[in-house]
Structures are given as C-alpha cells and as structure tokens.
Design a protein around this nucleic acid. Structure first.
Length: 344
RNA sequence: GGAGGGAUGGCCGAGCGGUCAAUGGCAGCAGACUGUAAAUCUGCCGACUUAUGUCUACGAAGGUUCGAAUCCUUCUCCCUCCA
C-alpha cells in the first residue's frame, strides 16, 4: 500500500496535482482496500499467502539529508526529465511541483526496500507505471546489486477506446456496498462485442480452449459468451451464490420481462402510497433520477415505465393500487430497473 | 523584482454591457434501429410540485450602470517571458 507515497501523488497521467489526503483518510482507505482484495487474495503467513505492506512504514521516517546522499545521488535529473509522467506534464505546460517530481524516486526506493525486507524481485503494474518500476530496477542494481524485474501490461480500454471502469452508474466498484453483485454482473454482461474474448482471457480463469470456443460465436450468439464472462467475473469477486443469483435476476428481468429478486430495491412508507404520490416524485425517490426535474424529463422523454407500462403523465398519481404483490417495478430505459417496496 | 496572458456549467472551449441558464464539442440520460453489443440518427442535459415564474451560477469580494460572464478596483490562484 502506498500509505507513504499517496502523500506525494503520482504525476502519471494527470495534469493536476493530486489532492493531498490526511492520515485518517489514508488509514481508512487502506483498510478498505484490504477488504476489497481479501476477496481475491488469501492473506496470511503461509508460503504462498499474500501480505499487505505499507510503504509509510519506511517512508514516513526518512531523513532528508541521508536519503538524498544515499538514494538521491543515483538519480539524474536528465533521466527523470525523460520519464513520460514528467515529460508530458512539462510539454503540456502544466505545473509539476517538486513534491510530485519526487514520486518516482520514492517508488523506486520502495522496490529496493521491498527487496531488502521481503526478497521481492518482481514488480507488476500498468504500463503507466513502467517508468517508476524501471527506476526501482536501476536503483536496486546500484545500491544493493540486486537483479530486479518489472512487468507491465497495457491499461485496459474497451474496443471503442473508452477507459475501463466506467459504467452508466459511475465507477465499477469491487465492494458490494458500492456496486451490488447484480450491477457488477450487468457491467460485464454489457461488454462490447469486440472485447468479449479479450476480457474472458483477462478477467476469468476459464481454460483457453473454452475461451476460444466462446470467441467463435457470432451475432446474437455472442450474448452467450457475455453471460459466461459476467458469471465467471462475478463469481471470482462475489462468490458462486451471489453470481448465480445475479445471473438469475438478469435472466428473469431481461429474458422474461419479469422481476428479479436482486434488482435494486427501495423502500417507501406505505402511508405515502395510501395518499398517493406523483409519478415523477416516485422515480426521484427510487433513485432513477437525480432530481425532480430529471425525473420529469425522463417521463416526458418516454423512458419511464411503471410495472412495464409506459408512463405518459409525469403528474399522474401513483397509489397503493399499483402494488403487485407488495411491490412496484420502476424502469428508466431498458436497463435500469428498481423495485419499490411499501413498508409500514 | 519587472512585463504580459489567463481563471466560464462534469471536462474542453466560445462569449467580451442587454435578446445569456450562457454557441459548440466530449461525457451522461432517454428514444429509434438491434442482440441487455457497437456504429448511426433523434430528443434531453443547473435547481425548484413545471412557472411564458423564482432562485443559484461565468475564480473571490466590492463598485459603475436601469441592466455585468462581459467595464472598474482590490484579492486569490495559474501560465509565459525577462532578471
């Protein structure tokens, strides 16, 4: 964990100085990240178990002068200026502070420190980390005569060039509290055709010959491959049960036009339904519109459905009569569905 | 220290006294077409129980004016050049 380096901020790929966080925020972020990774890695003390270390352990106590003399002398400004993270910022005439300029030195130092403490000899990262990793490799050779290695992979984009990680609802979160298994499943289910094969290889553990078979599918059949992708990816993160439930909810919702149990659910006071509530208000409360005005626009635009019936009048009053088995299904467009449940 | 240039809605970027909630592009949302895909086309895209209405908004605070994103003053931050 970059508990120390986050106080500096990696200048890679951004024009603006990263917002500096305070210690409490950093600590809570680290705890949160540990929880997210816990789903994917086995942390422990065993031979092959994962361990999480925090570079604040050795960076926070660094003394400036000794550090400059021992480590700083191995870095030339000439070389540092050729690093993309620095070069791009300068070329675009964006400010780069001395603080950020030091980031690569610290990350390089991290690698050496990890080698000395834990015998770590390989650093993996996105291709934007290449420069930072190489600095560590070089530094290792110079100060501890170690042979270190770097391994980078291209940052993942979709076939149409968009950066990964964004969905209609915002970012793709790994924690179920931020993005439900169902929404996570849907994220993968909606993968572009051209990405399916690549994503199957990158984000699932399926054997390559199975993936090769799925890749051969064409036209509408590609949907079968997408279902496999979504199911496998969701299983890895949320487990078999959650993934199966998500798949079942998606099947019911999209293939039968019914109501899946895992759809986002919003509770509403039964008394409100008794007296009646305007349609636009209901959509807003269900979280399908960010503001009342947006809800109205959604309905006016013809994108809103209540129990699969198109809503024509934003001011129409919805009452308890609309409840079917105690719930109302609201839809914004074809993909965003929410269940409203009356309570009390 | 000196001389210039700049700060506009999620982002980029026009506007340079009224017709500006602010051109255009991107992103986003919805509709059509489809396969819960992409591409394309269409509409929407500050908030408010929607109103030819109110409020908030063009870095911040004052001022000029019937009226300011647009003019003036001060401040903050950024960029470029010179030292």
């Amino acid at each position: 964990m970059g508990g120390g380096t986050t106080k500096i901020g990696d200048p890679s790929g951004r024009d603006e100085t990263r917002t500096l966080l305070n210690d409490a925020t950093i600590a809570s972020n680290i705890a949160s990240i540990l929880k997210a990774f816990d789903r994917l890695l086995t942390f422990g003390t065993g031979k092959t178990d994962a361990m999480m270390v925090n570079n604040a352990d050795w960076l926070d106590g660094l003394q400036y002068i000794p550090f400059l003399r021992d480590i700083g002398k191995h870095f030339t400004i000439n070389r540092m200026l050729t690093m993309d993270s620095v070069k791009l910022r300068l070329e675009r005439e964006q400010p780069l502070t001395f603080l950020e300029f030091n980031y690569m030195i610290l990350q390089g130092y991290d690698f050496v420190e990890l080698y000395k403490r834990l015998g770590c000899t390989l650093q993996l990262g996105g291709s934007d980390q290449w420069g930072n990793i190489i600095q560590g490799v070089d530094l290792g050779r110079r100060v501890v005569d170690a042979e270190l290695f770097g391994f980078t992979c291209p940052l993942i984009t979709t076939a149409s060039g968009a950066k990964m990680g964004k969905t209609a609802a915002g970012a793709v979160w790994l924690k179920a509290e931020r993005l439900s298994p169902y929404d996570y499943y849907q994220f993968w289910r909606n993968t572009e055709d051209g990405d399916v094969g690549r994503f199957l290889k990158l984000f699932t553990d399926l054997p390559l010959d199975e993936i090769a078979r799925l890749e051969k599918l064409e036209g509408a059949d590609i949907n079968d491959a997408k279902k496999v992708l979504a199911l496998e990816a969701t299983t890895l993160l949320h487990g078999t049960d959650a993934a199966r439930d998500a798949a079942e909810t998606a099947r019911k919702t999209f293939e039968q036009g019914g109501i899946g149990e895992d759809l986002p659910t919003v509770e509403i006071d039964g008394a409100i339904l008794k007296t009646g509530i305007a349609t636009w208000d209901l959509f807003q409360r269900a979280g399908l519109a960010a503001s009342n005005g947006e809800a109205r626009r959604l309905i006016r635009g013809g994108g809103a459905k209540l129990n699969d019936q198109k809503c024509d009048d934003e001011n129409a009053v919805v009452t308890a009569d609309a409840l079917v088995n105690g719930i109302i299904k609201l839809s914004a467009g074809k993909k965003r569905h929410t269940i409203v449940k009356a309570i009390g």
